[in-house]
Nucleic acid binder design. Structure first.
Lengths: 151, 151
DNA sequence: AACCGATCCTACTTGCTCGGTAGGCATTGT
DNA sequence: ACAATGCCTACCGAGCAAGTAGGATCGGTT
């Protein structure tokens, strides 16, 4: 799983919007709060707008606001909007790659891995993430003995 | 999760080696069986050798062989050898990124997602994958209703 | 000693993506 | 009119991904 700067910034901006929901917040304010490069963040927010995650308000006192309640927005939705599909194999969807011979069952593994990812990222929403009250299954994953150890 | 061509090829080559374990197989034979570009595969196998997943035999009738039994080799080991860590956020390990303000709990989510990935990729080995007898938890993940549907 | 099939090493190419910057136009409340 | 904001296009430098090319080296066979 590779979360790009775009993905990271997008989630952080969305969290900042969730914290002030349903207020409208300017790019500058979001950039300041999360210490993000303003111009780059602009491009990221444009992605979120095209994905209908946020709505833009132009003109003086403009900015962005979530199009729906924080708890209605899954983190996966945000990541997909800016980084594309959660899982890809050689640039293709896991279910689209096919294998021959001894690799026959490989796509089943890719699909399972994607499914595991979805079970985390599609199930956590902005409200939970903002308050830190993650679903118990997710909390358990992060609490396993060496979950915080690199491998 | 982004599996590159390197990662895909590496797992397929390893599976082909597992199928013939403990025989020595040439790059050419591996490339033929899985239809991979030979020269590129050479570079991938070099990675696996440096990670001590395979051993190279030089000279006539040379090739590669697994350094241990197929069931002792996790898929994650192969992916890490050629693609680096399973999960990265902005080029860093999930446990290394820190956040302020409304994004405070974000690293917990990244760690949970990585943990979920590990629970699949670190638990499946070449023997299971070659025979298709995946662990029941993994099989269940791939069998959930819309696991094979794109989102 | 010669040969042949194999790995190994270095270099190169081509195209794409990533992260970010710059400038200016369009919109809107005051 | 003005100022603050979003919107759009273009650009840049660095790095990476996916190969390709050519040859050096090794080692068993003849």
């Amino acid at each position: 799983m590779r979360v790009s700067a775009r993905g990271d910034y997008a989630v952080r901006a969305a969290l900042a919007l969730a914290a002030r929901y349903p207020a409208t917040v300017s790019t500058q304010a979001l950039a300041d709060e999360q210490r993000l490069p303003r111009k780059f963040l602009e491009a990221v927010l444009a992605d979120l707008r095209r994905a209908d995650v946020v709505r833009a308000v132009r003109g003086c006192d403009g900015g962005y606001q979530l199009t729906r309640e924080p708890r209605q927005v899954a983190v996966a939705t945000i990541l997909r909007a800016v980084d594309g599909p959660l899982a890809e194999v050689r640039g293709m969807r896991p279910e689209q790659v096919t294998y021959a011979g001894s690799a026959q069952h490989l796509s089943e593994l890719w699909v399972a891995a994607r499914s595991a990812l979805r079970d985390v990222l599609d199930e956590v929403n902005l409200a939970q993430l903002a308050t830190g009250r993650l679903p118990s299954r997710v909390r358990r994953l992060a609490a396993t003995p060496d979950a915080w150890q690199p491998r």
